Simulated scan of single mutants.
Amino acid sequence: MELPGILAEIEDVAGTDAALAIAKACGGTQVYFPPLPSNDHWLCRLIGRDPARAVCERLTCGVGPLRVDVPLGPTARAVQLRAEVDKLLGTNMSERDIARRTGYTARAVRRRRQKTGIKPDDGQLPLL
């Protein structure tokens, strides 16, 4: 399985299970990685101290903290979710509400709207 973006780097250092755990816990959000996480840091609790430290070292190069947008990662329902997003894009629902309802990020909803060209239903009837 090929993981996207930063998850592939995490997979190289800490393994597939760790990368998938991070994607499941934080996918679609921005996450803070310190150069050296403490033992009670969320990442240490999630994947273990040594893998967490290896991930942080790889991402920050031990220099300074880093904020990263974590991708959602693989999903078995990608096609159904895209169809649901496409359907909701035609309604008056906000991008934020669509993202929260479907598990997409707001950025992904905006990009999907751009790609498909679906305009929100403004309730206006055609003139002719």
Score class of each variant (00 low, 15 high):
I10A: 06
I10G: 02
E11K: 15
E11Q: 15
D12C: 15
V13G: 01
A14C: 09
A14D: 03
A14F: 07
A14M: 06
G15D: 03
G15Y: 11
G15K: 06
T16F: 11
D17G: 02
D17L: 14
D17A: 14
A18K: 03
A18M: 02
A19H: 03
A21Q: 07
A21Y: 06
A21W: 02
I22N: 01
I22F: 04
A23E: 04
A23Q: 04
K24C: 05
A25S: 05
A25W: 07
C26A: 04
G27L: 04
T29E: 12
Q30C: 05
Q30M: 15
V31P: 04
Y32H: 14
F33A: 02
F33K: 00
P34Q: 03
P34I: 03
P34G: 03
P35A: 14
P35G: 11
L36K: 08
L36F: 10
P37S: 03
P37D: 08
S38Q: 13
N39C: 03
N39Y: 00
D40E: 09
D40Q: 06
D40S: 08
D40V: 06
H41N: 11
H41W: 11
H41V: 05
W42E: 08
W42D: 07
L43C: 07
C44N: 10
R45W: 07
R45H: 09
R45D: 07
L46H: 03
L46K: 04
L46D: 02
L46G: 06
L46F: 08
I47S: 02
I47C: 02
I47R: 01
G48L: 04
D50Q: 14
P51F: 06
P51Y: 05
P51H: 12
A52F: 01
A52H: 02
R53I: 10
R53H: 07
A54N: 10
A54T: 01
A54P: 01
V55E: 04
V55I: 03
C56K: 04
E57N: 11
T60P: 01
T60S: 12
T60Q: 11
C61E: 14
C61P: 00
G62D: 09
V63M: 12
V63G: 06
V63A: 14
G64P: 00
G64V: 07
P65G: 15
P65M: 11
P65S: 14
L66V: 09
L66S: 04
L66M: 08
D69S: 14
D69R: 15
D69N: 15
V70S: 01
V70M: 13
V70H: 04
P71H: 09
P71L: 08
P71Y: 06
L72V: 09
L72G: 14
L72D: 04
L72T: 06
G73P: 06
G73Y: 08
T75N: 11
T75H: 14
A76P: 00
A76V: 13
A76R: 15
R77P: 00
A78M: 07
A78H: 10
V79D: 15
V79F: 03
V79E: 15
Q80L: 08
Q80F: 05
L81E: 11
L81Q: 14
R82C: 09
R82V: 11
R82A: 11
A83K: 13
A83C: 07
A83E: 14
A83T: 07
E84K: 12
E84F: 02
E84R: 15
V85G: 05
V85K: 07
V85A: 15
D86R: 13
K87L: 11
K87I: 07
K87D: 10
K87H: 14
L88F: 13
L89Y: 10
L89K: 05
L89I: 04
